[in-house]
Design a protein around this nucleic acid. Structure first.
Lengths: 348, 348
DNA sequence: AGCGCAATTGGAAGCGCTTCCATAGAGGCG
DNA sequence: CGCCTCTATGGAAGCGCTTCCAATTGCGCT
């Protein structure tokens, strides 16, 4: 049934060299004559030999295993595009770099969530950890992992996470700022803002950018009303009335992510508003949902898949020690306002 | 830095037994006195010992690794809910059963896609393979994996895949049938149907169920127009005009999945139709998008996460050889029509 | 009392690989 | 030409675990 796979010794025998030489060839080691190297590769080819990662890991002490942890529970957060895309990017990069990634979902409300994550990396001997929000801002967790000798990369850390470990992300504050500027340019002066979940520092920065843009325009606290959602579509539909019925009568609703914006859109439809004529709505992320709702959503694009890929690349660079500075690196990728059809000039 | 982890020998020493006894305890082996078992567990506790999966795998020849392969490329298929949910279910089950799952995305258009999948399982020494559509219908692939001694579970196989390997899924034909019956009940008599991608046998069964319901009602080929999409939102928007402008003038559009239905909905909005008054639209899957679009989509619910979970459970049962029949098992889960707001009685 | 058998336990031998250290040539140089 | 250094290769020793088999003990039965 299960035909026994060839081992390194089979390759050694066939190519007439010692096992250790085969190992050298396989790992690109130095001091092997080209002729010998070719002979070994030839044998590998004919035998269809593949190294046994478990054995390699045991002997070499390097598992080549990475862990990717995310909090969102698709049960409650319908569109888990962000996590999926991050994962896909990470998966692709791993394939290219010869690493494997263990994916784990740890809902934020898990009681012993930090222990769960730490356990995963010790139990499975992971060498690297990719943390997505909100774990990317959990300094205690980051330090605990680091203390265990596990390298860490944070995706979209909002603040304190930066500096402790390597990170990737976009400039959320600039994103919020740019989106708001666009709305101001269109003539909006009264705004509603649906913020992200408490503890998502990255989402808080979007709010900060929003406020900065208003302030620059000479607008203050009284010209906007801010409420806090939880990133879900449902929280968008729930919070929309609160904003729409507010005495301020905002003409534009800025949301900290696309799902909430979609929720707002749905609530607006439900009360018979014409979008964007009666109300401008914007999201953040440029998730697929932004193109699926009607009308398509104006939002801030962020290259999530690339984020996942860069996270792995940073991690592997750190693990293999190639040209890495001692200090933590933060890799900032480009964002872009994508104007679709939920924004226009305000009604008089 | 990286404090060395305790090994099985440390536990043996501390509890005053031989290494092999510790191994027995750890693996729930028989013939260990309760007193000894307790002593060992105690030592495990104090040392915070965790078995090294790589070493275990090497010695025992069982990697406890499963592979989950999916085809959809989120790049082109925006809402990869189906795959994500499947994966999450699988992840959860693995956590409970002490297995690990390696996720791999192999786009369908990959030239050597079968080789890629087979390589994954040999290279990583996976013991089990979870195949989602359309790979779940690739008999050659299934047999190749089986021949390698890798157990296989297919998710939603449409036909030939069943019987070759264990499988899980819903009754797609019944789903299509039930949905159509509901539309007939409302009074619809002229239909459009957007089918799934070629080769997705499971989706073809939805079409088969649709036709069966029509036939029962005495309706024939002339009362419906069928076109083929590719499961994407975009294909829904692209194909909608074709159906809406068809001389048959269908009053209801049945789609093989939710994304395409969302696309149809968007196209309908674009040409100023009122949904559902002017046109009824139905989807399939009950993906999050079904609740996000406006108005919310009537669709057929299928428990995707549970599917992923059952897939792993079947696989592990097969691997550990507990109460499994020799024949392939197919685990059929419940589906249900979910009536939301895109369906109503047809206009006269 | 003597024997067989089952229940417990441990010793030893690897699983397939890498790492450490030793060995043998091949120049380089005064 | 002898000595040293550098390159290429191999031998041996494990990594931490499981599996195979032998050894020890206790007990029921004749």
């Amino acid at each position: 049934m299960t035909t026994k796979r060839p081992t390194i010794d089979d390759v050694a025998r066939l190519s007439g060299v010692a096992r250790v030489t085969v190992s050298r060839v396989l790992n690109g080691g130095p001091n092997v004559r080209d002729e010998v190297r070719a002979r070994v590769m030839q044998a590998v080819e004919t035998l269809d030999y593949k190294v046994n990662p478990q054995a390699r890991s045991l002997a070499g002490g390097a598992s080549r295993l990475l862990a990717f942890v995310f909090a969102s529970d698709p049960e409650n957060e319908p569109n888990s595009y962000y996590e999926s895309a991050l994962e896909l990017g990470a998966l692709r990069a791993c394939l290219a770099l010869g690493y494997q990634v263990l994916v784990q979902n740890v809902p934020q409300q898990t009681p012993d969530r930090e222990k769960r994550i730490l356990d995963l990396i010790t139990t499975q001997r992971c060498e690297g950890l990719i943390l997505s929000p909100p774990y990317s801002d959990d300094v205690a967790l980051i330090e605990a992992a680091l203390a265990q000798g596990c390298k860490v990369v944070t995706v979209s850390p909002g603040g304190p996470g930066r500096g402790k470990a390597d990170g990737v992300g976009v400039d959320d504050e600039a994103g919020g700022y740019d989106m708001t500027r666009e709305l101001l340019r269109l003539g909006h002066r009264r705004f509603g803002f649906i913020a992200g979940l408490e503890g998502h520092l990255s989402a808080d920065r979007r709010l900060k950018g929003f406020r900065k843009a208003l302030a620059e325009q000479g607008l203050g606290e009284g010209d906007s009303v801010v409420v806090r959602g939880d990133f879900t579509f449902r929280s968008g539909t729930r919070l929309a009335p609160e904003l729409l019925d507010h005495p301020l009568k905002p003409t534009a609703l800025v949301c900290a992510n696309d799902d909430m914006a979609a929720g707002v859109l749905s609530a607006a439809h439900a009360r018979g508003l014409s979008i964007p004529q009666d109300l401008s709505i914007t999201g953040f992320d440029d998730a697929p949902v932004a193109g699926i709702v009607w009308p398509p959503l104006t939002t801030v694009h962020q290259p999530v898949k690339v984020l996942g890929q860069r996270a792995v690349e940073l991690l592997v660079a750190r693990l293999t020690g190639v040209n890495v500075s001692n200090a933590a690196v933060f890799d900032e990728l480009e964002h872009a306002v994508v104007t679709r059809q939920t924004t226009t000039v305000p009604r008089l």
